[in-house]
Structures are given as structure tokens and as C-alpha cells.
Amino acid sequence: MTEFLQPAVEGFFLGASLIVAIGAQNAFVLRQGLARSHVFPIATFCFLADAMLIAAGVGGLGALVQGAPRVLFVVTLAGAAFLFVYGAMALRRAFHAEALSASGAAEMRLGPALATVAALTFLNPHVYLDTVVLLGSLSGRHAGTARLAFGAGAMVASCVWFYALGYGARLLAPVFARPVAWRILDVAIGVVMFSIAASLVVSRS
């Protein structure tokens, strides 16, 4: 039992250390959670996407990704462009009074919401580097079922985090009852998006 528990715990904490960070995906989940809009499908999508990528990394796809620099280059530029546009949209929301409310965020239909979170997930090269490459490489320290336990632990961390972020955001509802709080959040999201986009471009220059 210990030989499976130890790698699972290791995978959980390593996965959490990579997932629990300020990023485009987390910012979107937080905003939708505050608006109580499509929280379950969005959190579920994020968890399943992470689980799929972690499984691919543990299964050995990480080595293939590292050997395809052109693919990473294209994904990086596409991700940077999308993050820049989304950041501009967040800043536009912040400076237009009609969007400074939870109802404004709730107006996004499920289809566009899922399309947005899919783009924020799969157009971000850091997602592949963290899940497929890094976690995949670290899982190589284990063999057989212990390696699977490591991957499962990382998946559990992703599951706990996204549902906690989405549903826990409502605890901040009293704070975000004020329009100024939404303004600050959207400005912060815009800055985060621009920062990530810039770092992606710089890393490829």
C-alpha cells in the first residue's frame, strides 16, 4: 500500500504546485465562479483536460513533445495572440460600466464559455510543459503501478483545485457585489493575460 500511496501523494503535491497559480485558465474559472455561471461544466472541462494531458505525459508523450519544437512554436504564437485579445476584452469590460456586474459575466452562453476555456487551456504552451513534459518526466522516477499512482495523484489535485476555485469563488460574492471589485478583477485579468502573452513571445524570440 505504501509503495502506491507515496507516489500518489507526491503526484498530488507536485500537480497542485503547478496548477495553483495565477494564470489565464484560473482567472477565467474564478470569474465564472463569481458570476455563478456554468461553473460545473467549466470546472469539469478543466479537470478532464488536465487529466488527459497528465495521462499523456505519464504515458510517454512528453518526450515526443520535446522533440517537436516547430509545433511548440506555432502553439506559442497562437496562444500569445489569443491571450492578448482576451486581455484586451477584460480591460474593455473594466472600463465599460454596463459590464461591471456579475450579471454581465453570466450573460455568456455555455457554448462560448466552453470555447473560451478550451482556447485558454490548449493554446497555452505552459499547459503542455507543466502537465505533459514536466509531470511526465517526473513520473519516470516510478515504474509500473507506482507511476500510474503518481499520475492519479496529480489528476486528483487538478480535480480538487478547479471545483474548489469555481464553487469557492461564491464566498467572495459580498465583495464583488460592488462594481469597483469587478473593475479591479477585470483589470487584474487583463494584466495577467498581457503578461503571459508577452512572456510567451519573449521566450520564442
Rank of each mutant, 00 (worst) to 15 (best):
A68E: 02
L18M: 11
F4G: 04
S137M: 13
A8M: 11
V192S: 12
F28V: 00
M108Y: 04
I19A: 07
T116V: 11
L77Y: 15
G23P: 01
T76M: 03
A88H: 07
F12Q: 01
R31Y: 05
P179H: 14
A88K: 09
I54G: 04
A105V: 07
G104D: 06
L30A: 14
A143T: 13
A197H: 03
R147C: 12
A81W: 03
A146L: 12
A99Y: 15
P41T: 02
A188R: 07
A119L: 15
N26E: 01
G62R: 06
L185T: 00
S199C: 06
H126T: 07
R92E: 09
M108G: 00
A188G: 12
F84Y: 11
H38K: 07
A197Q: 06
A146T: 00
I22F: 14
V58E: 01
F194P: 00
L172Y: 08
R178I: 04
F40N: 03
T145Y: 15
Y128I: 02
G104R: 08
V202H: 10
A43V: 02
I42L: 04
A115W: 05
V187M: 14
A198N: 12
W182E: 03
L5G: 11
T116I: 12
G168M: 03
M89I: 01
S137W: 01
M108K: 08
V39F: 09
F95A: 10
E3R: 13
Q6P: 00
A8K: 11
V71Q: 03
H126Q: 09
P41A: 05
P174M: 08
L72D: 08
A181Y: 05
D50P: 02
E98I: 09
V75N: 09
R141W: 09
I184H: 04
L172P: 05
T76I: 02
A173C: 10
A63F: 08
T2M: 14
V156S: 06
A51P: 03
L172W: 10
A149Q: 12
G190H: 07
Q32G: 07
M193N: 09
L72W: 13
R204F: 10
P7K: 11
V39D: 06
L129T: 09
V20F: 05
L135I: 10
R141E: 13
A154F: 02
A115E: 00
G151Q: 11
G166A: 00
L129A: 14
A94P: 07
S101V: 07
F95M: 09
E107G: 13
E107D: 08
F84H: 11
F95W: 15
D186K: 14
G57V: 01
A197F: 08
S158R: 01
V201M: 12
A27Q: 13
E10K: 15
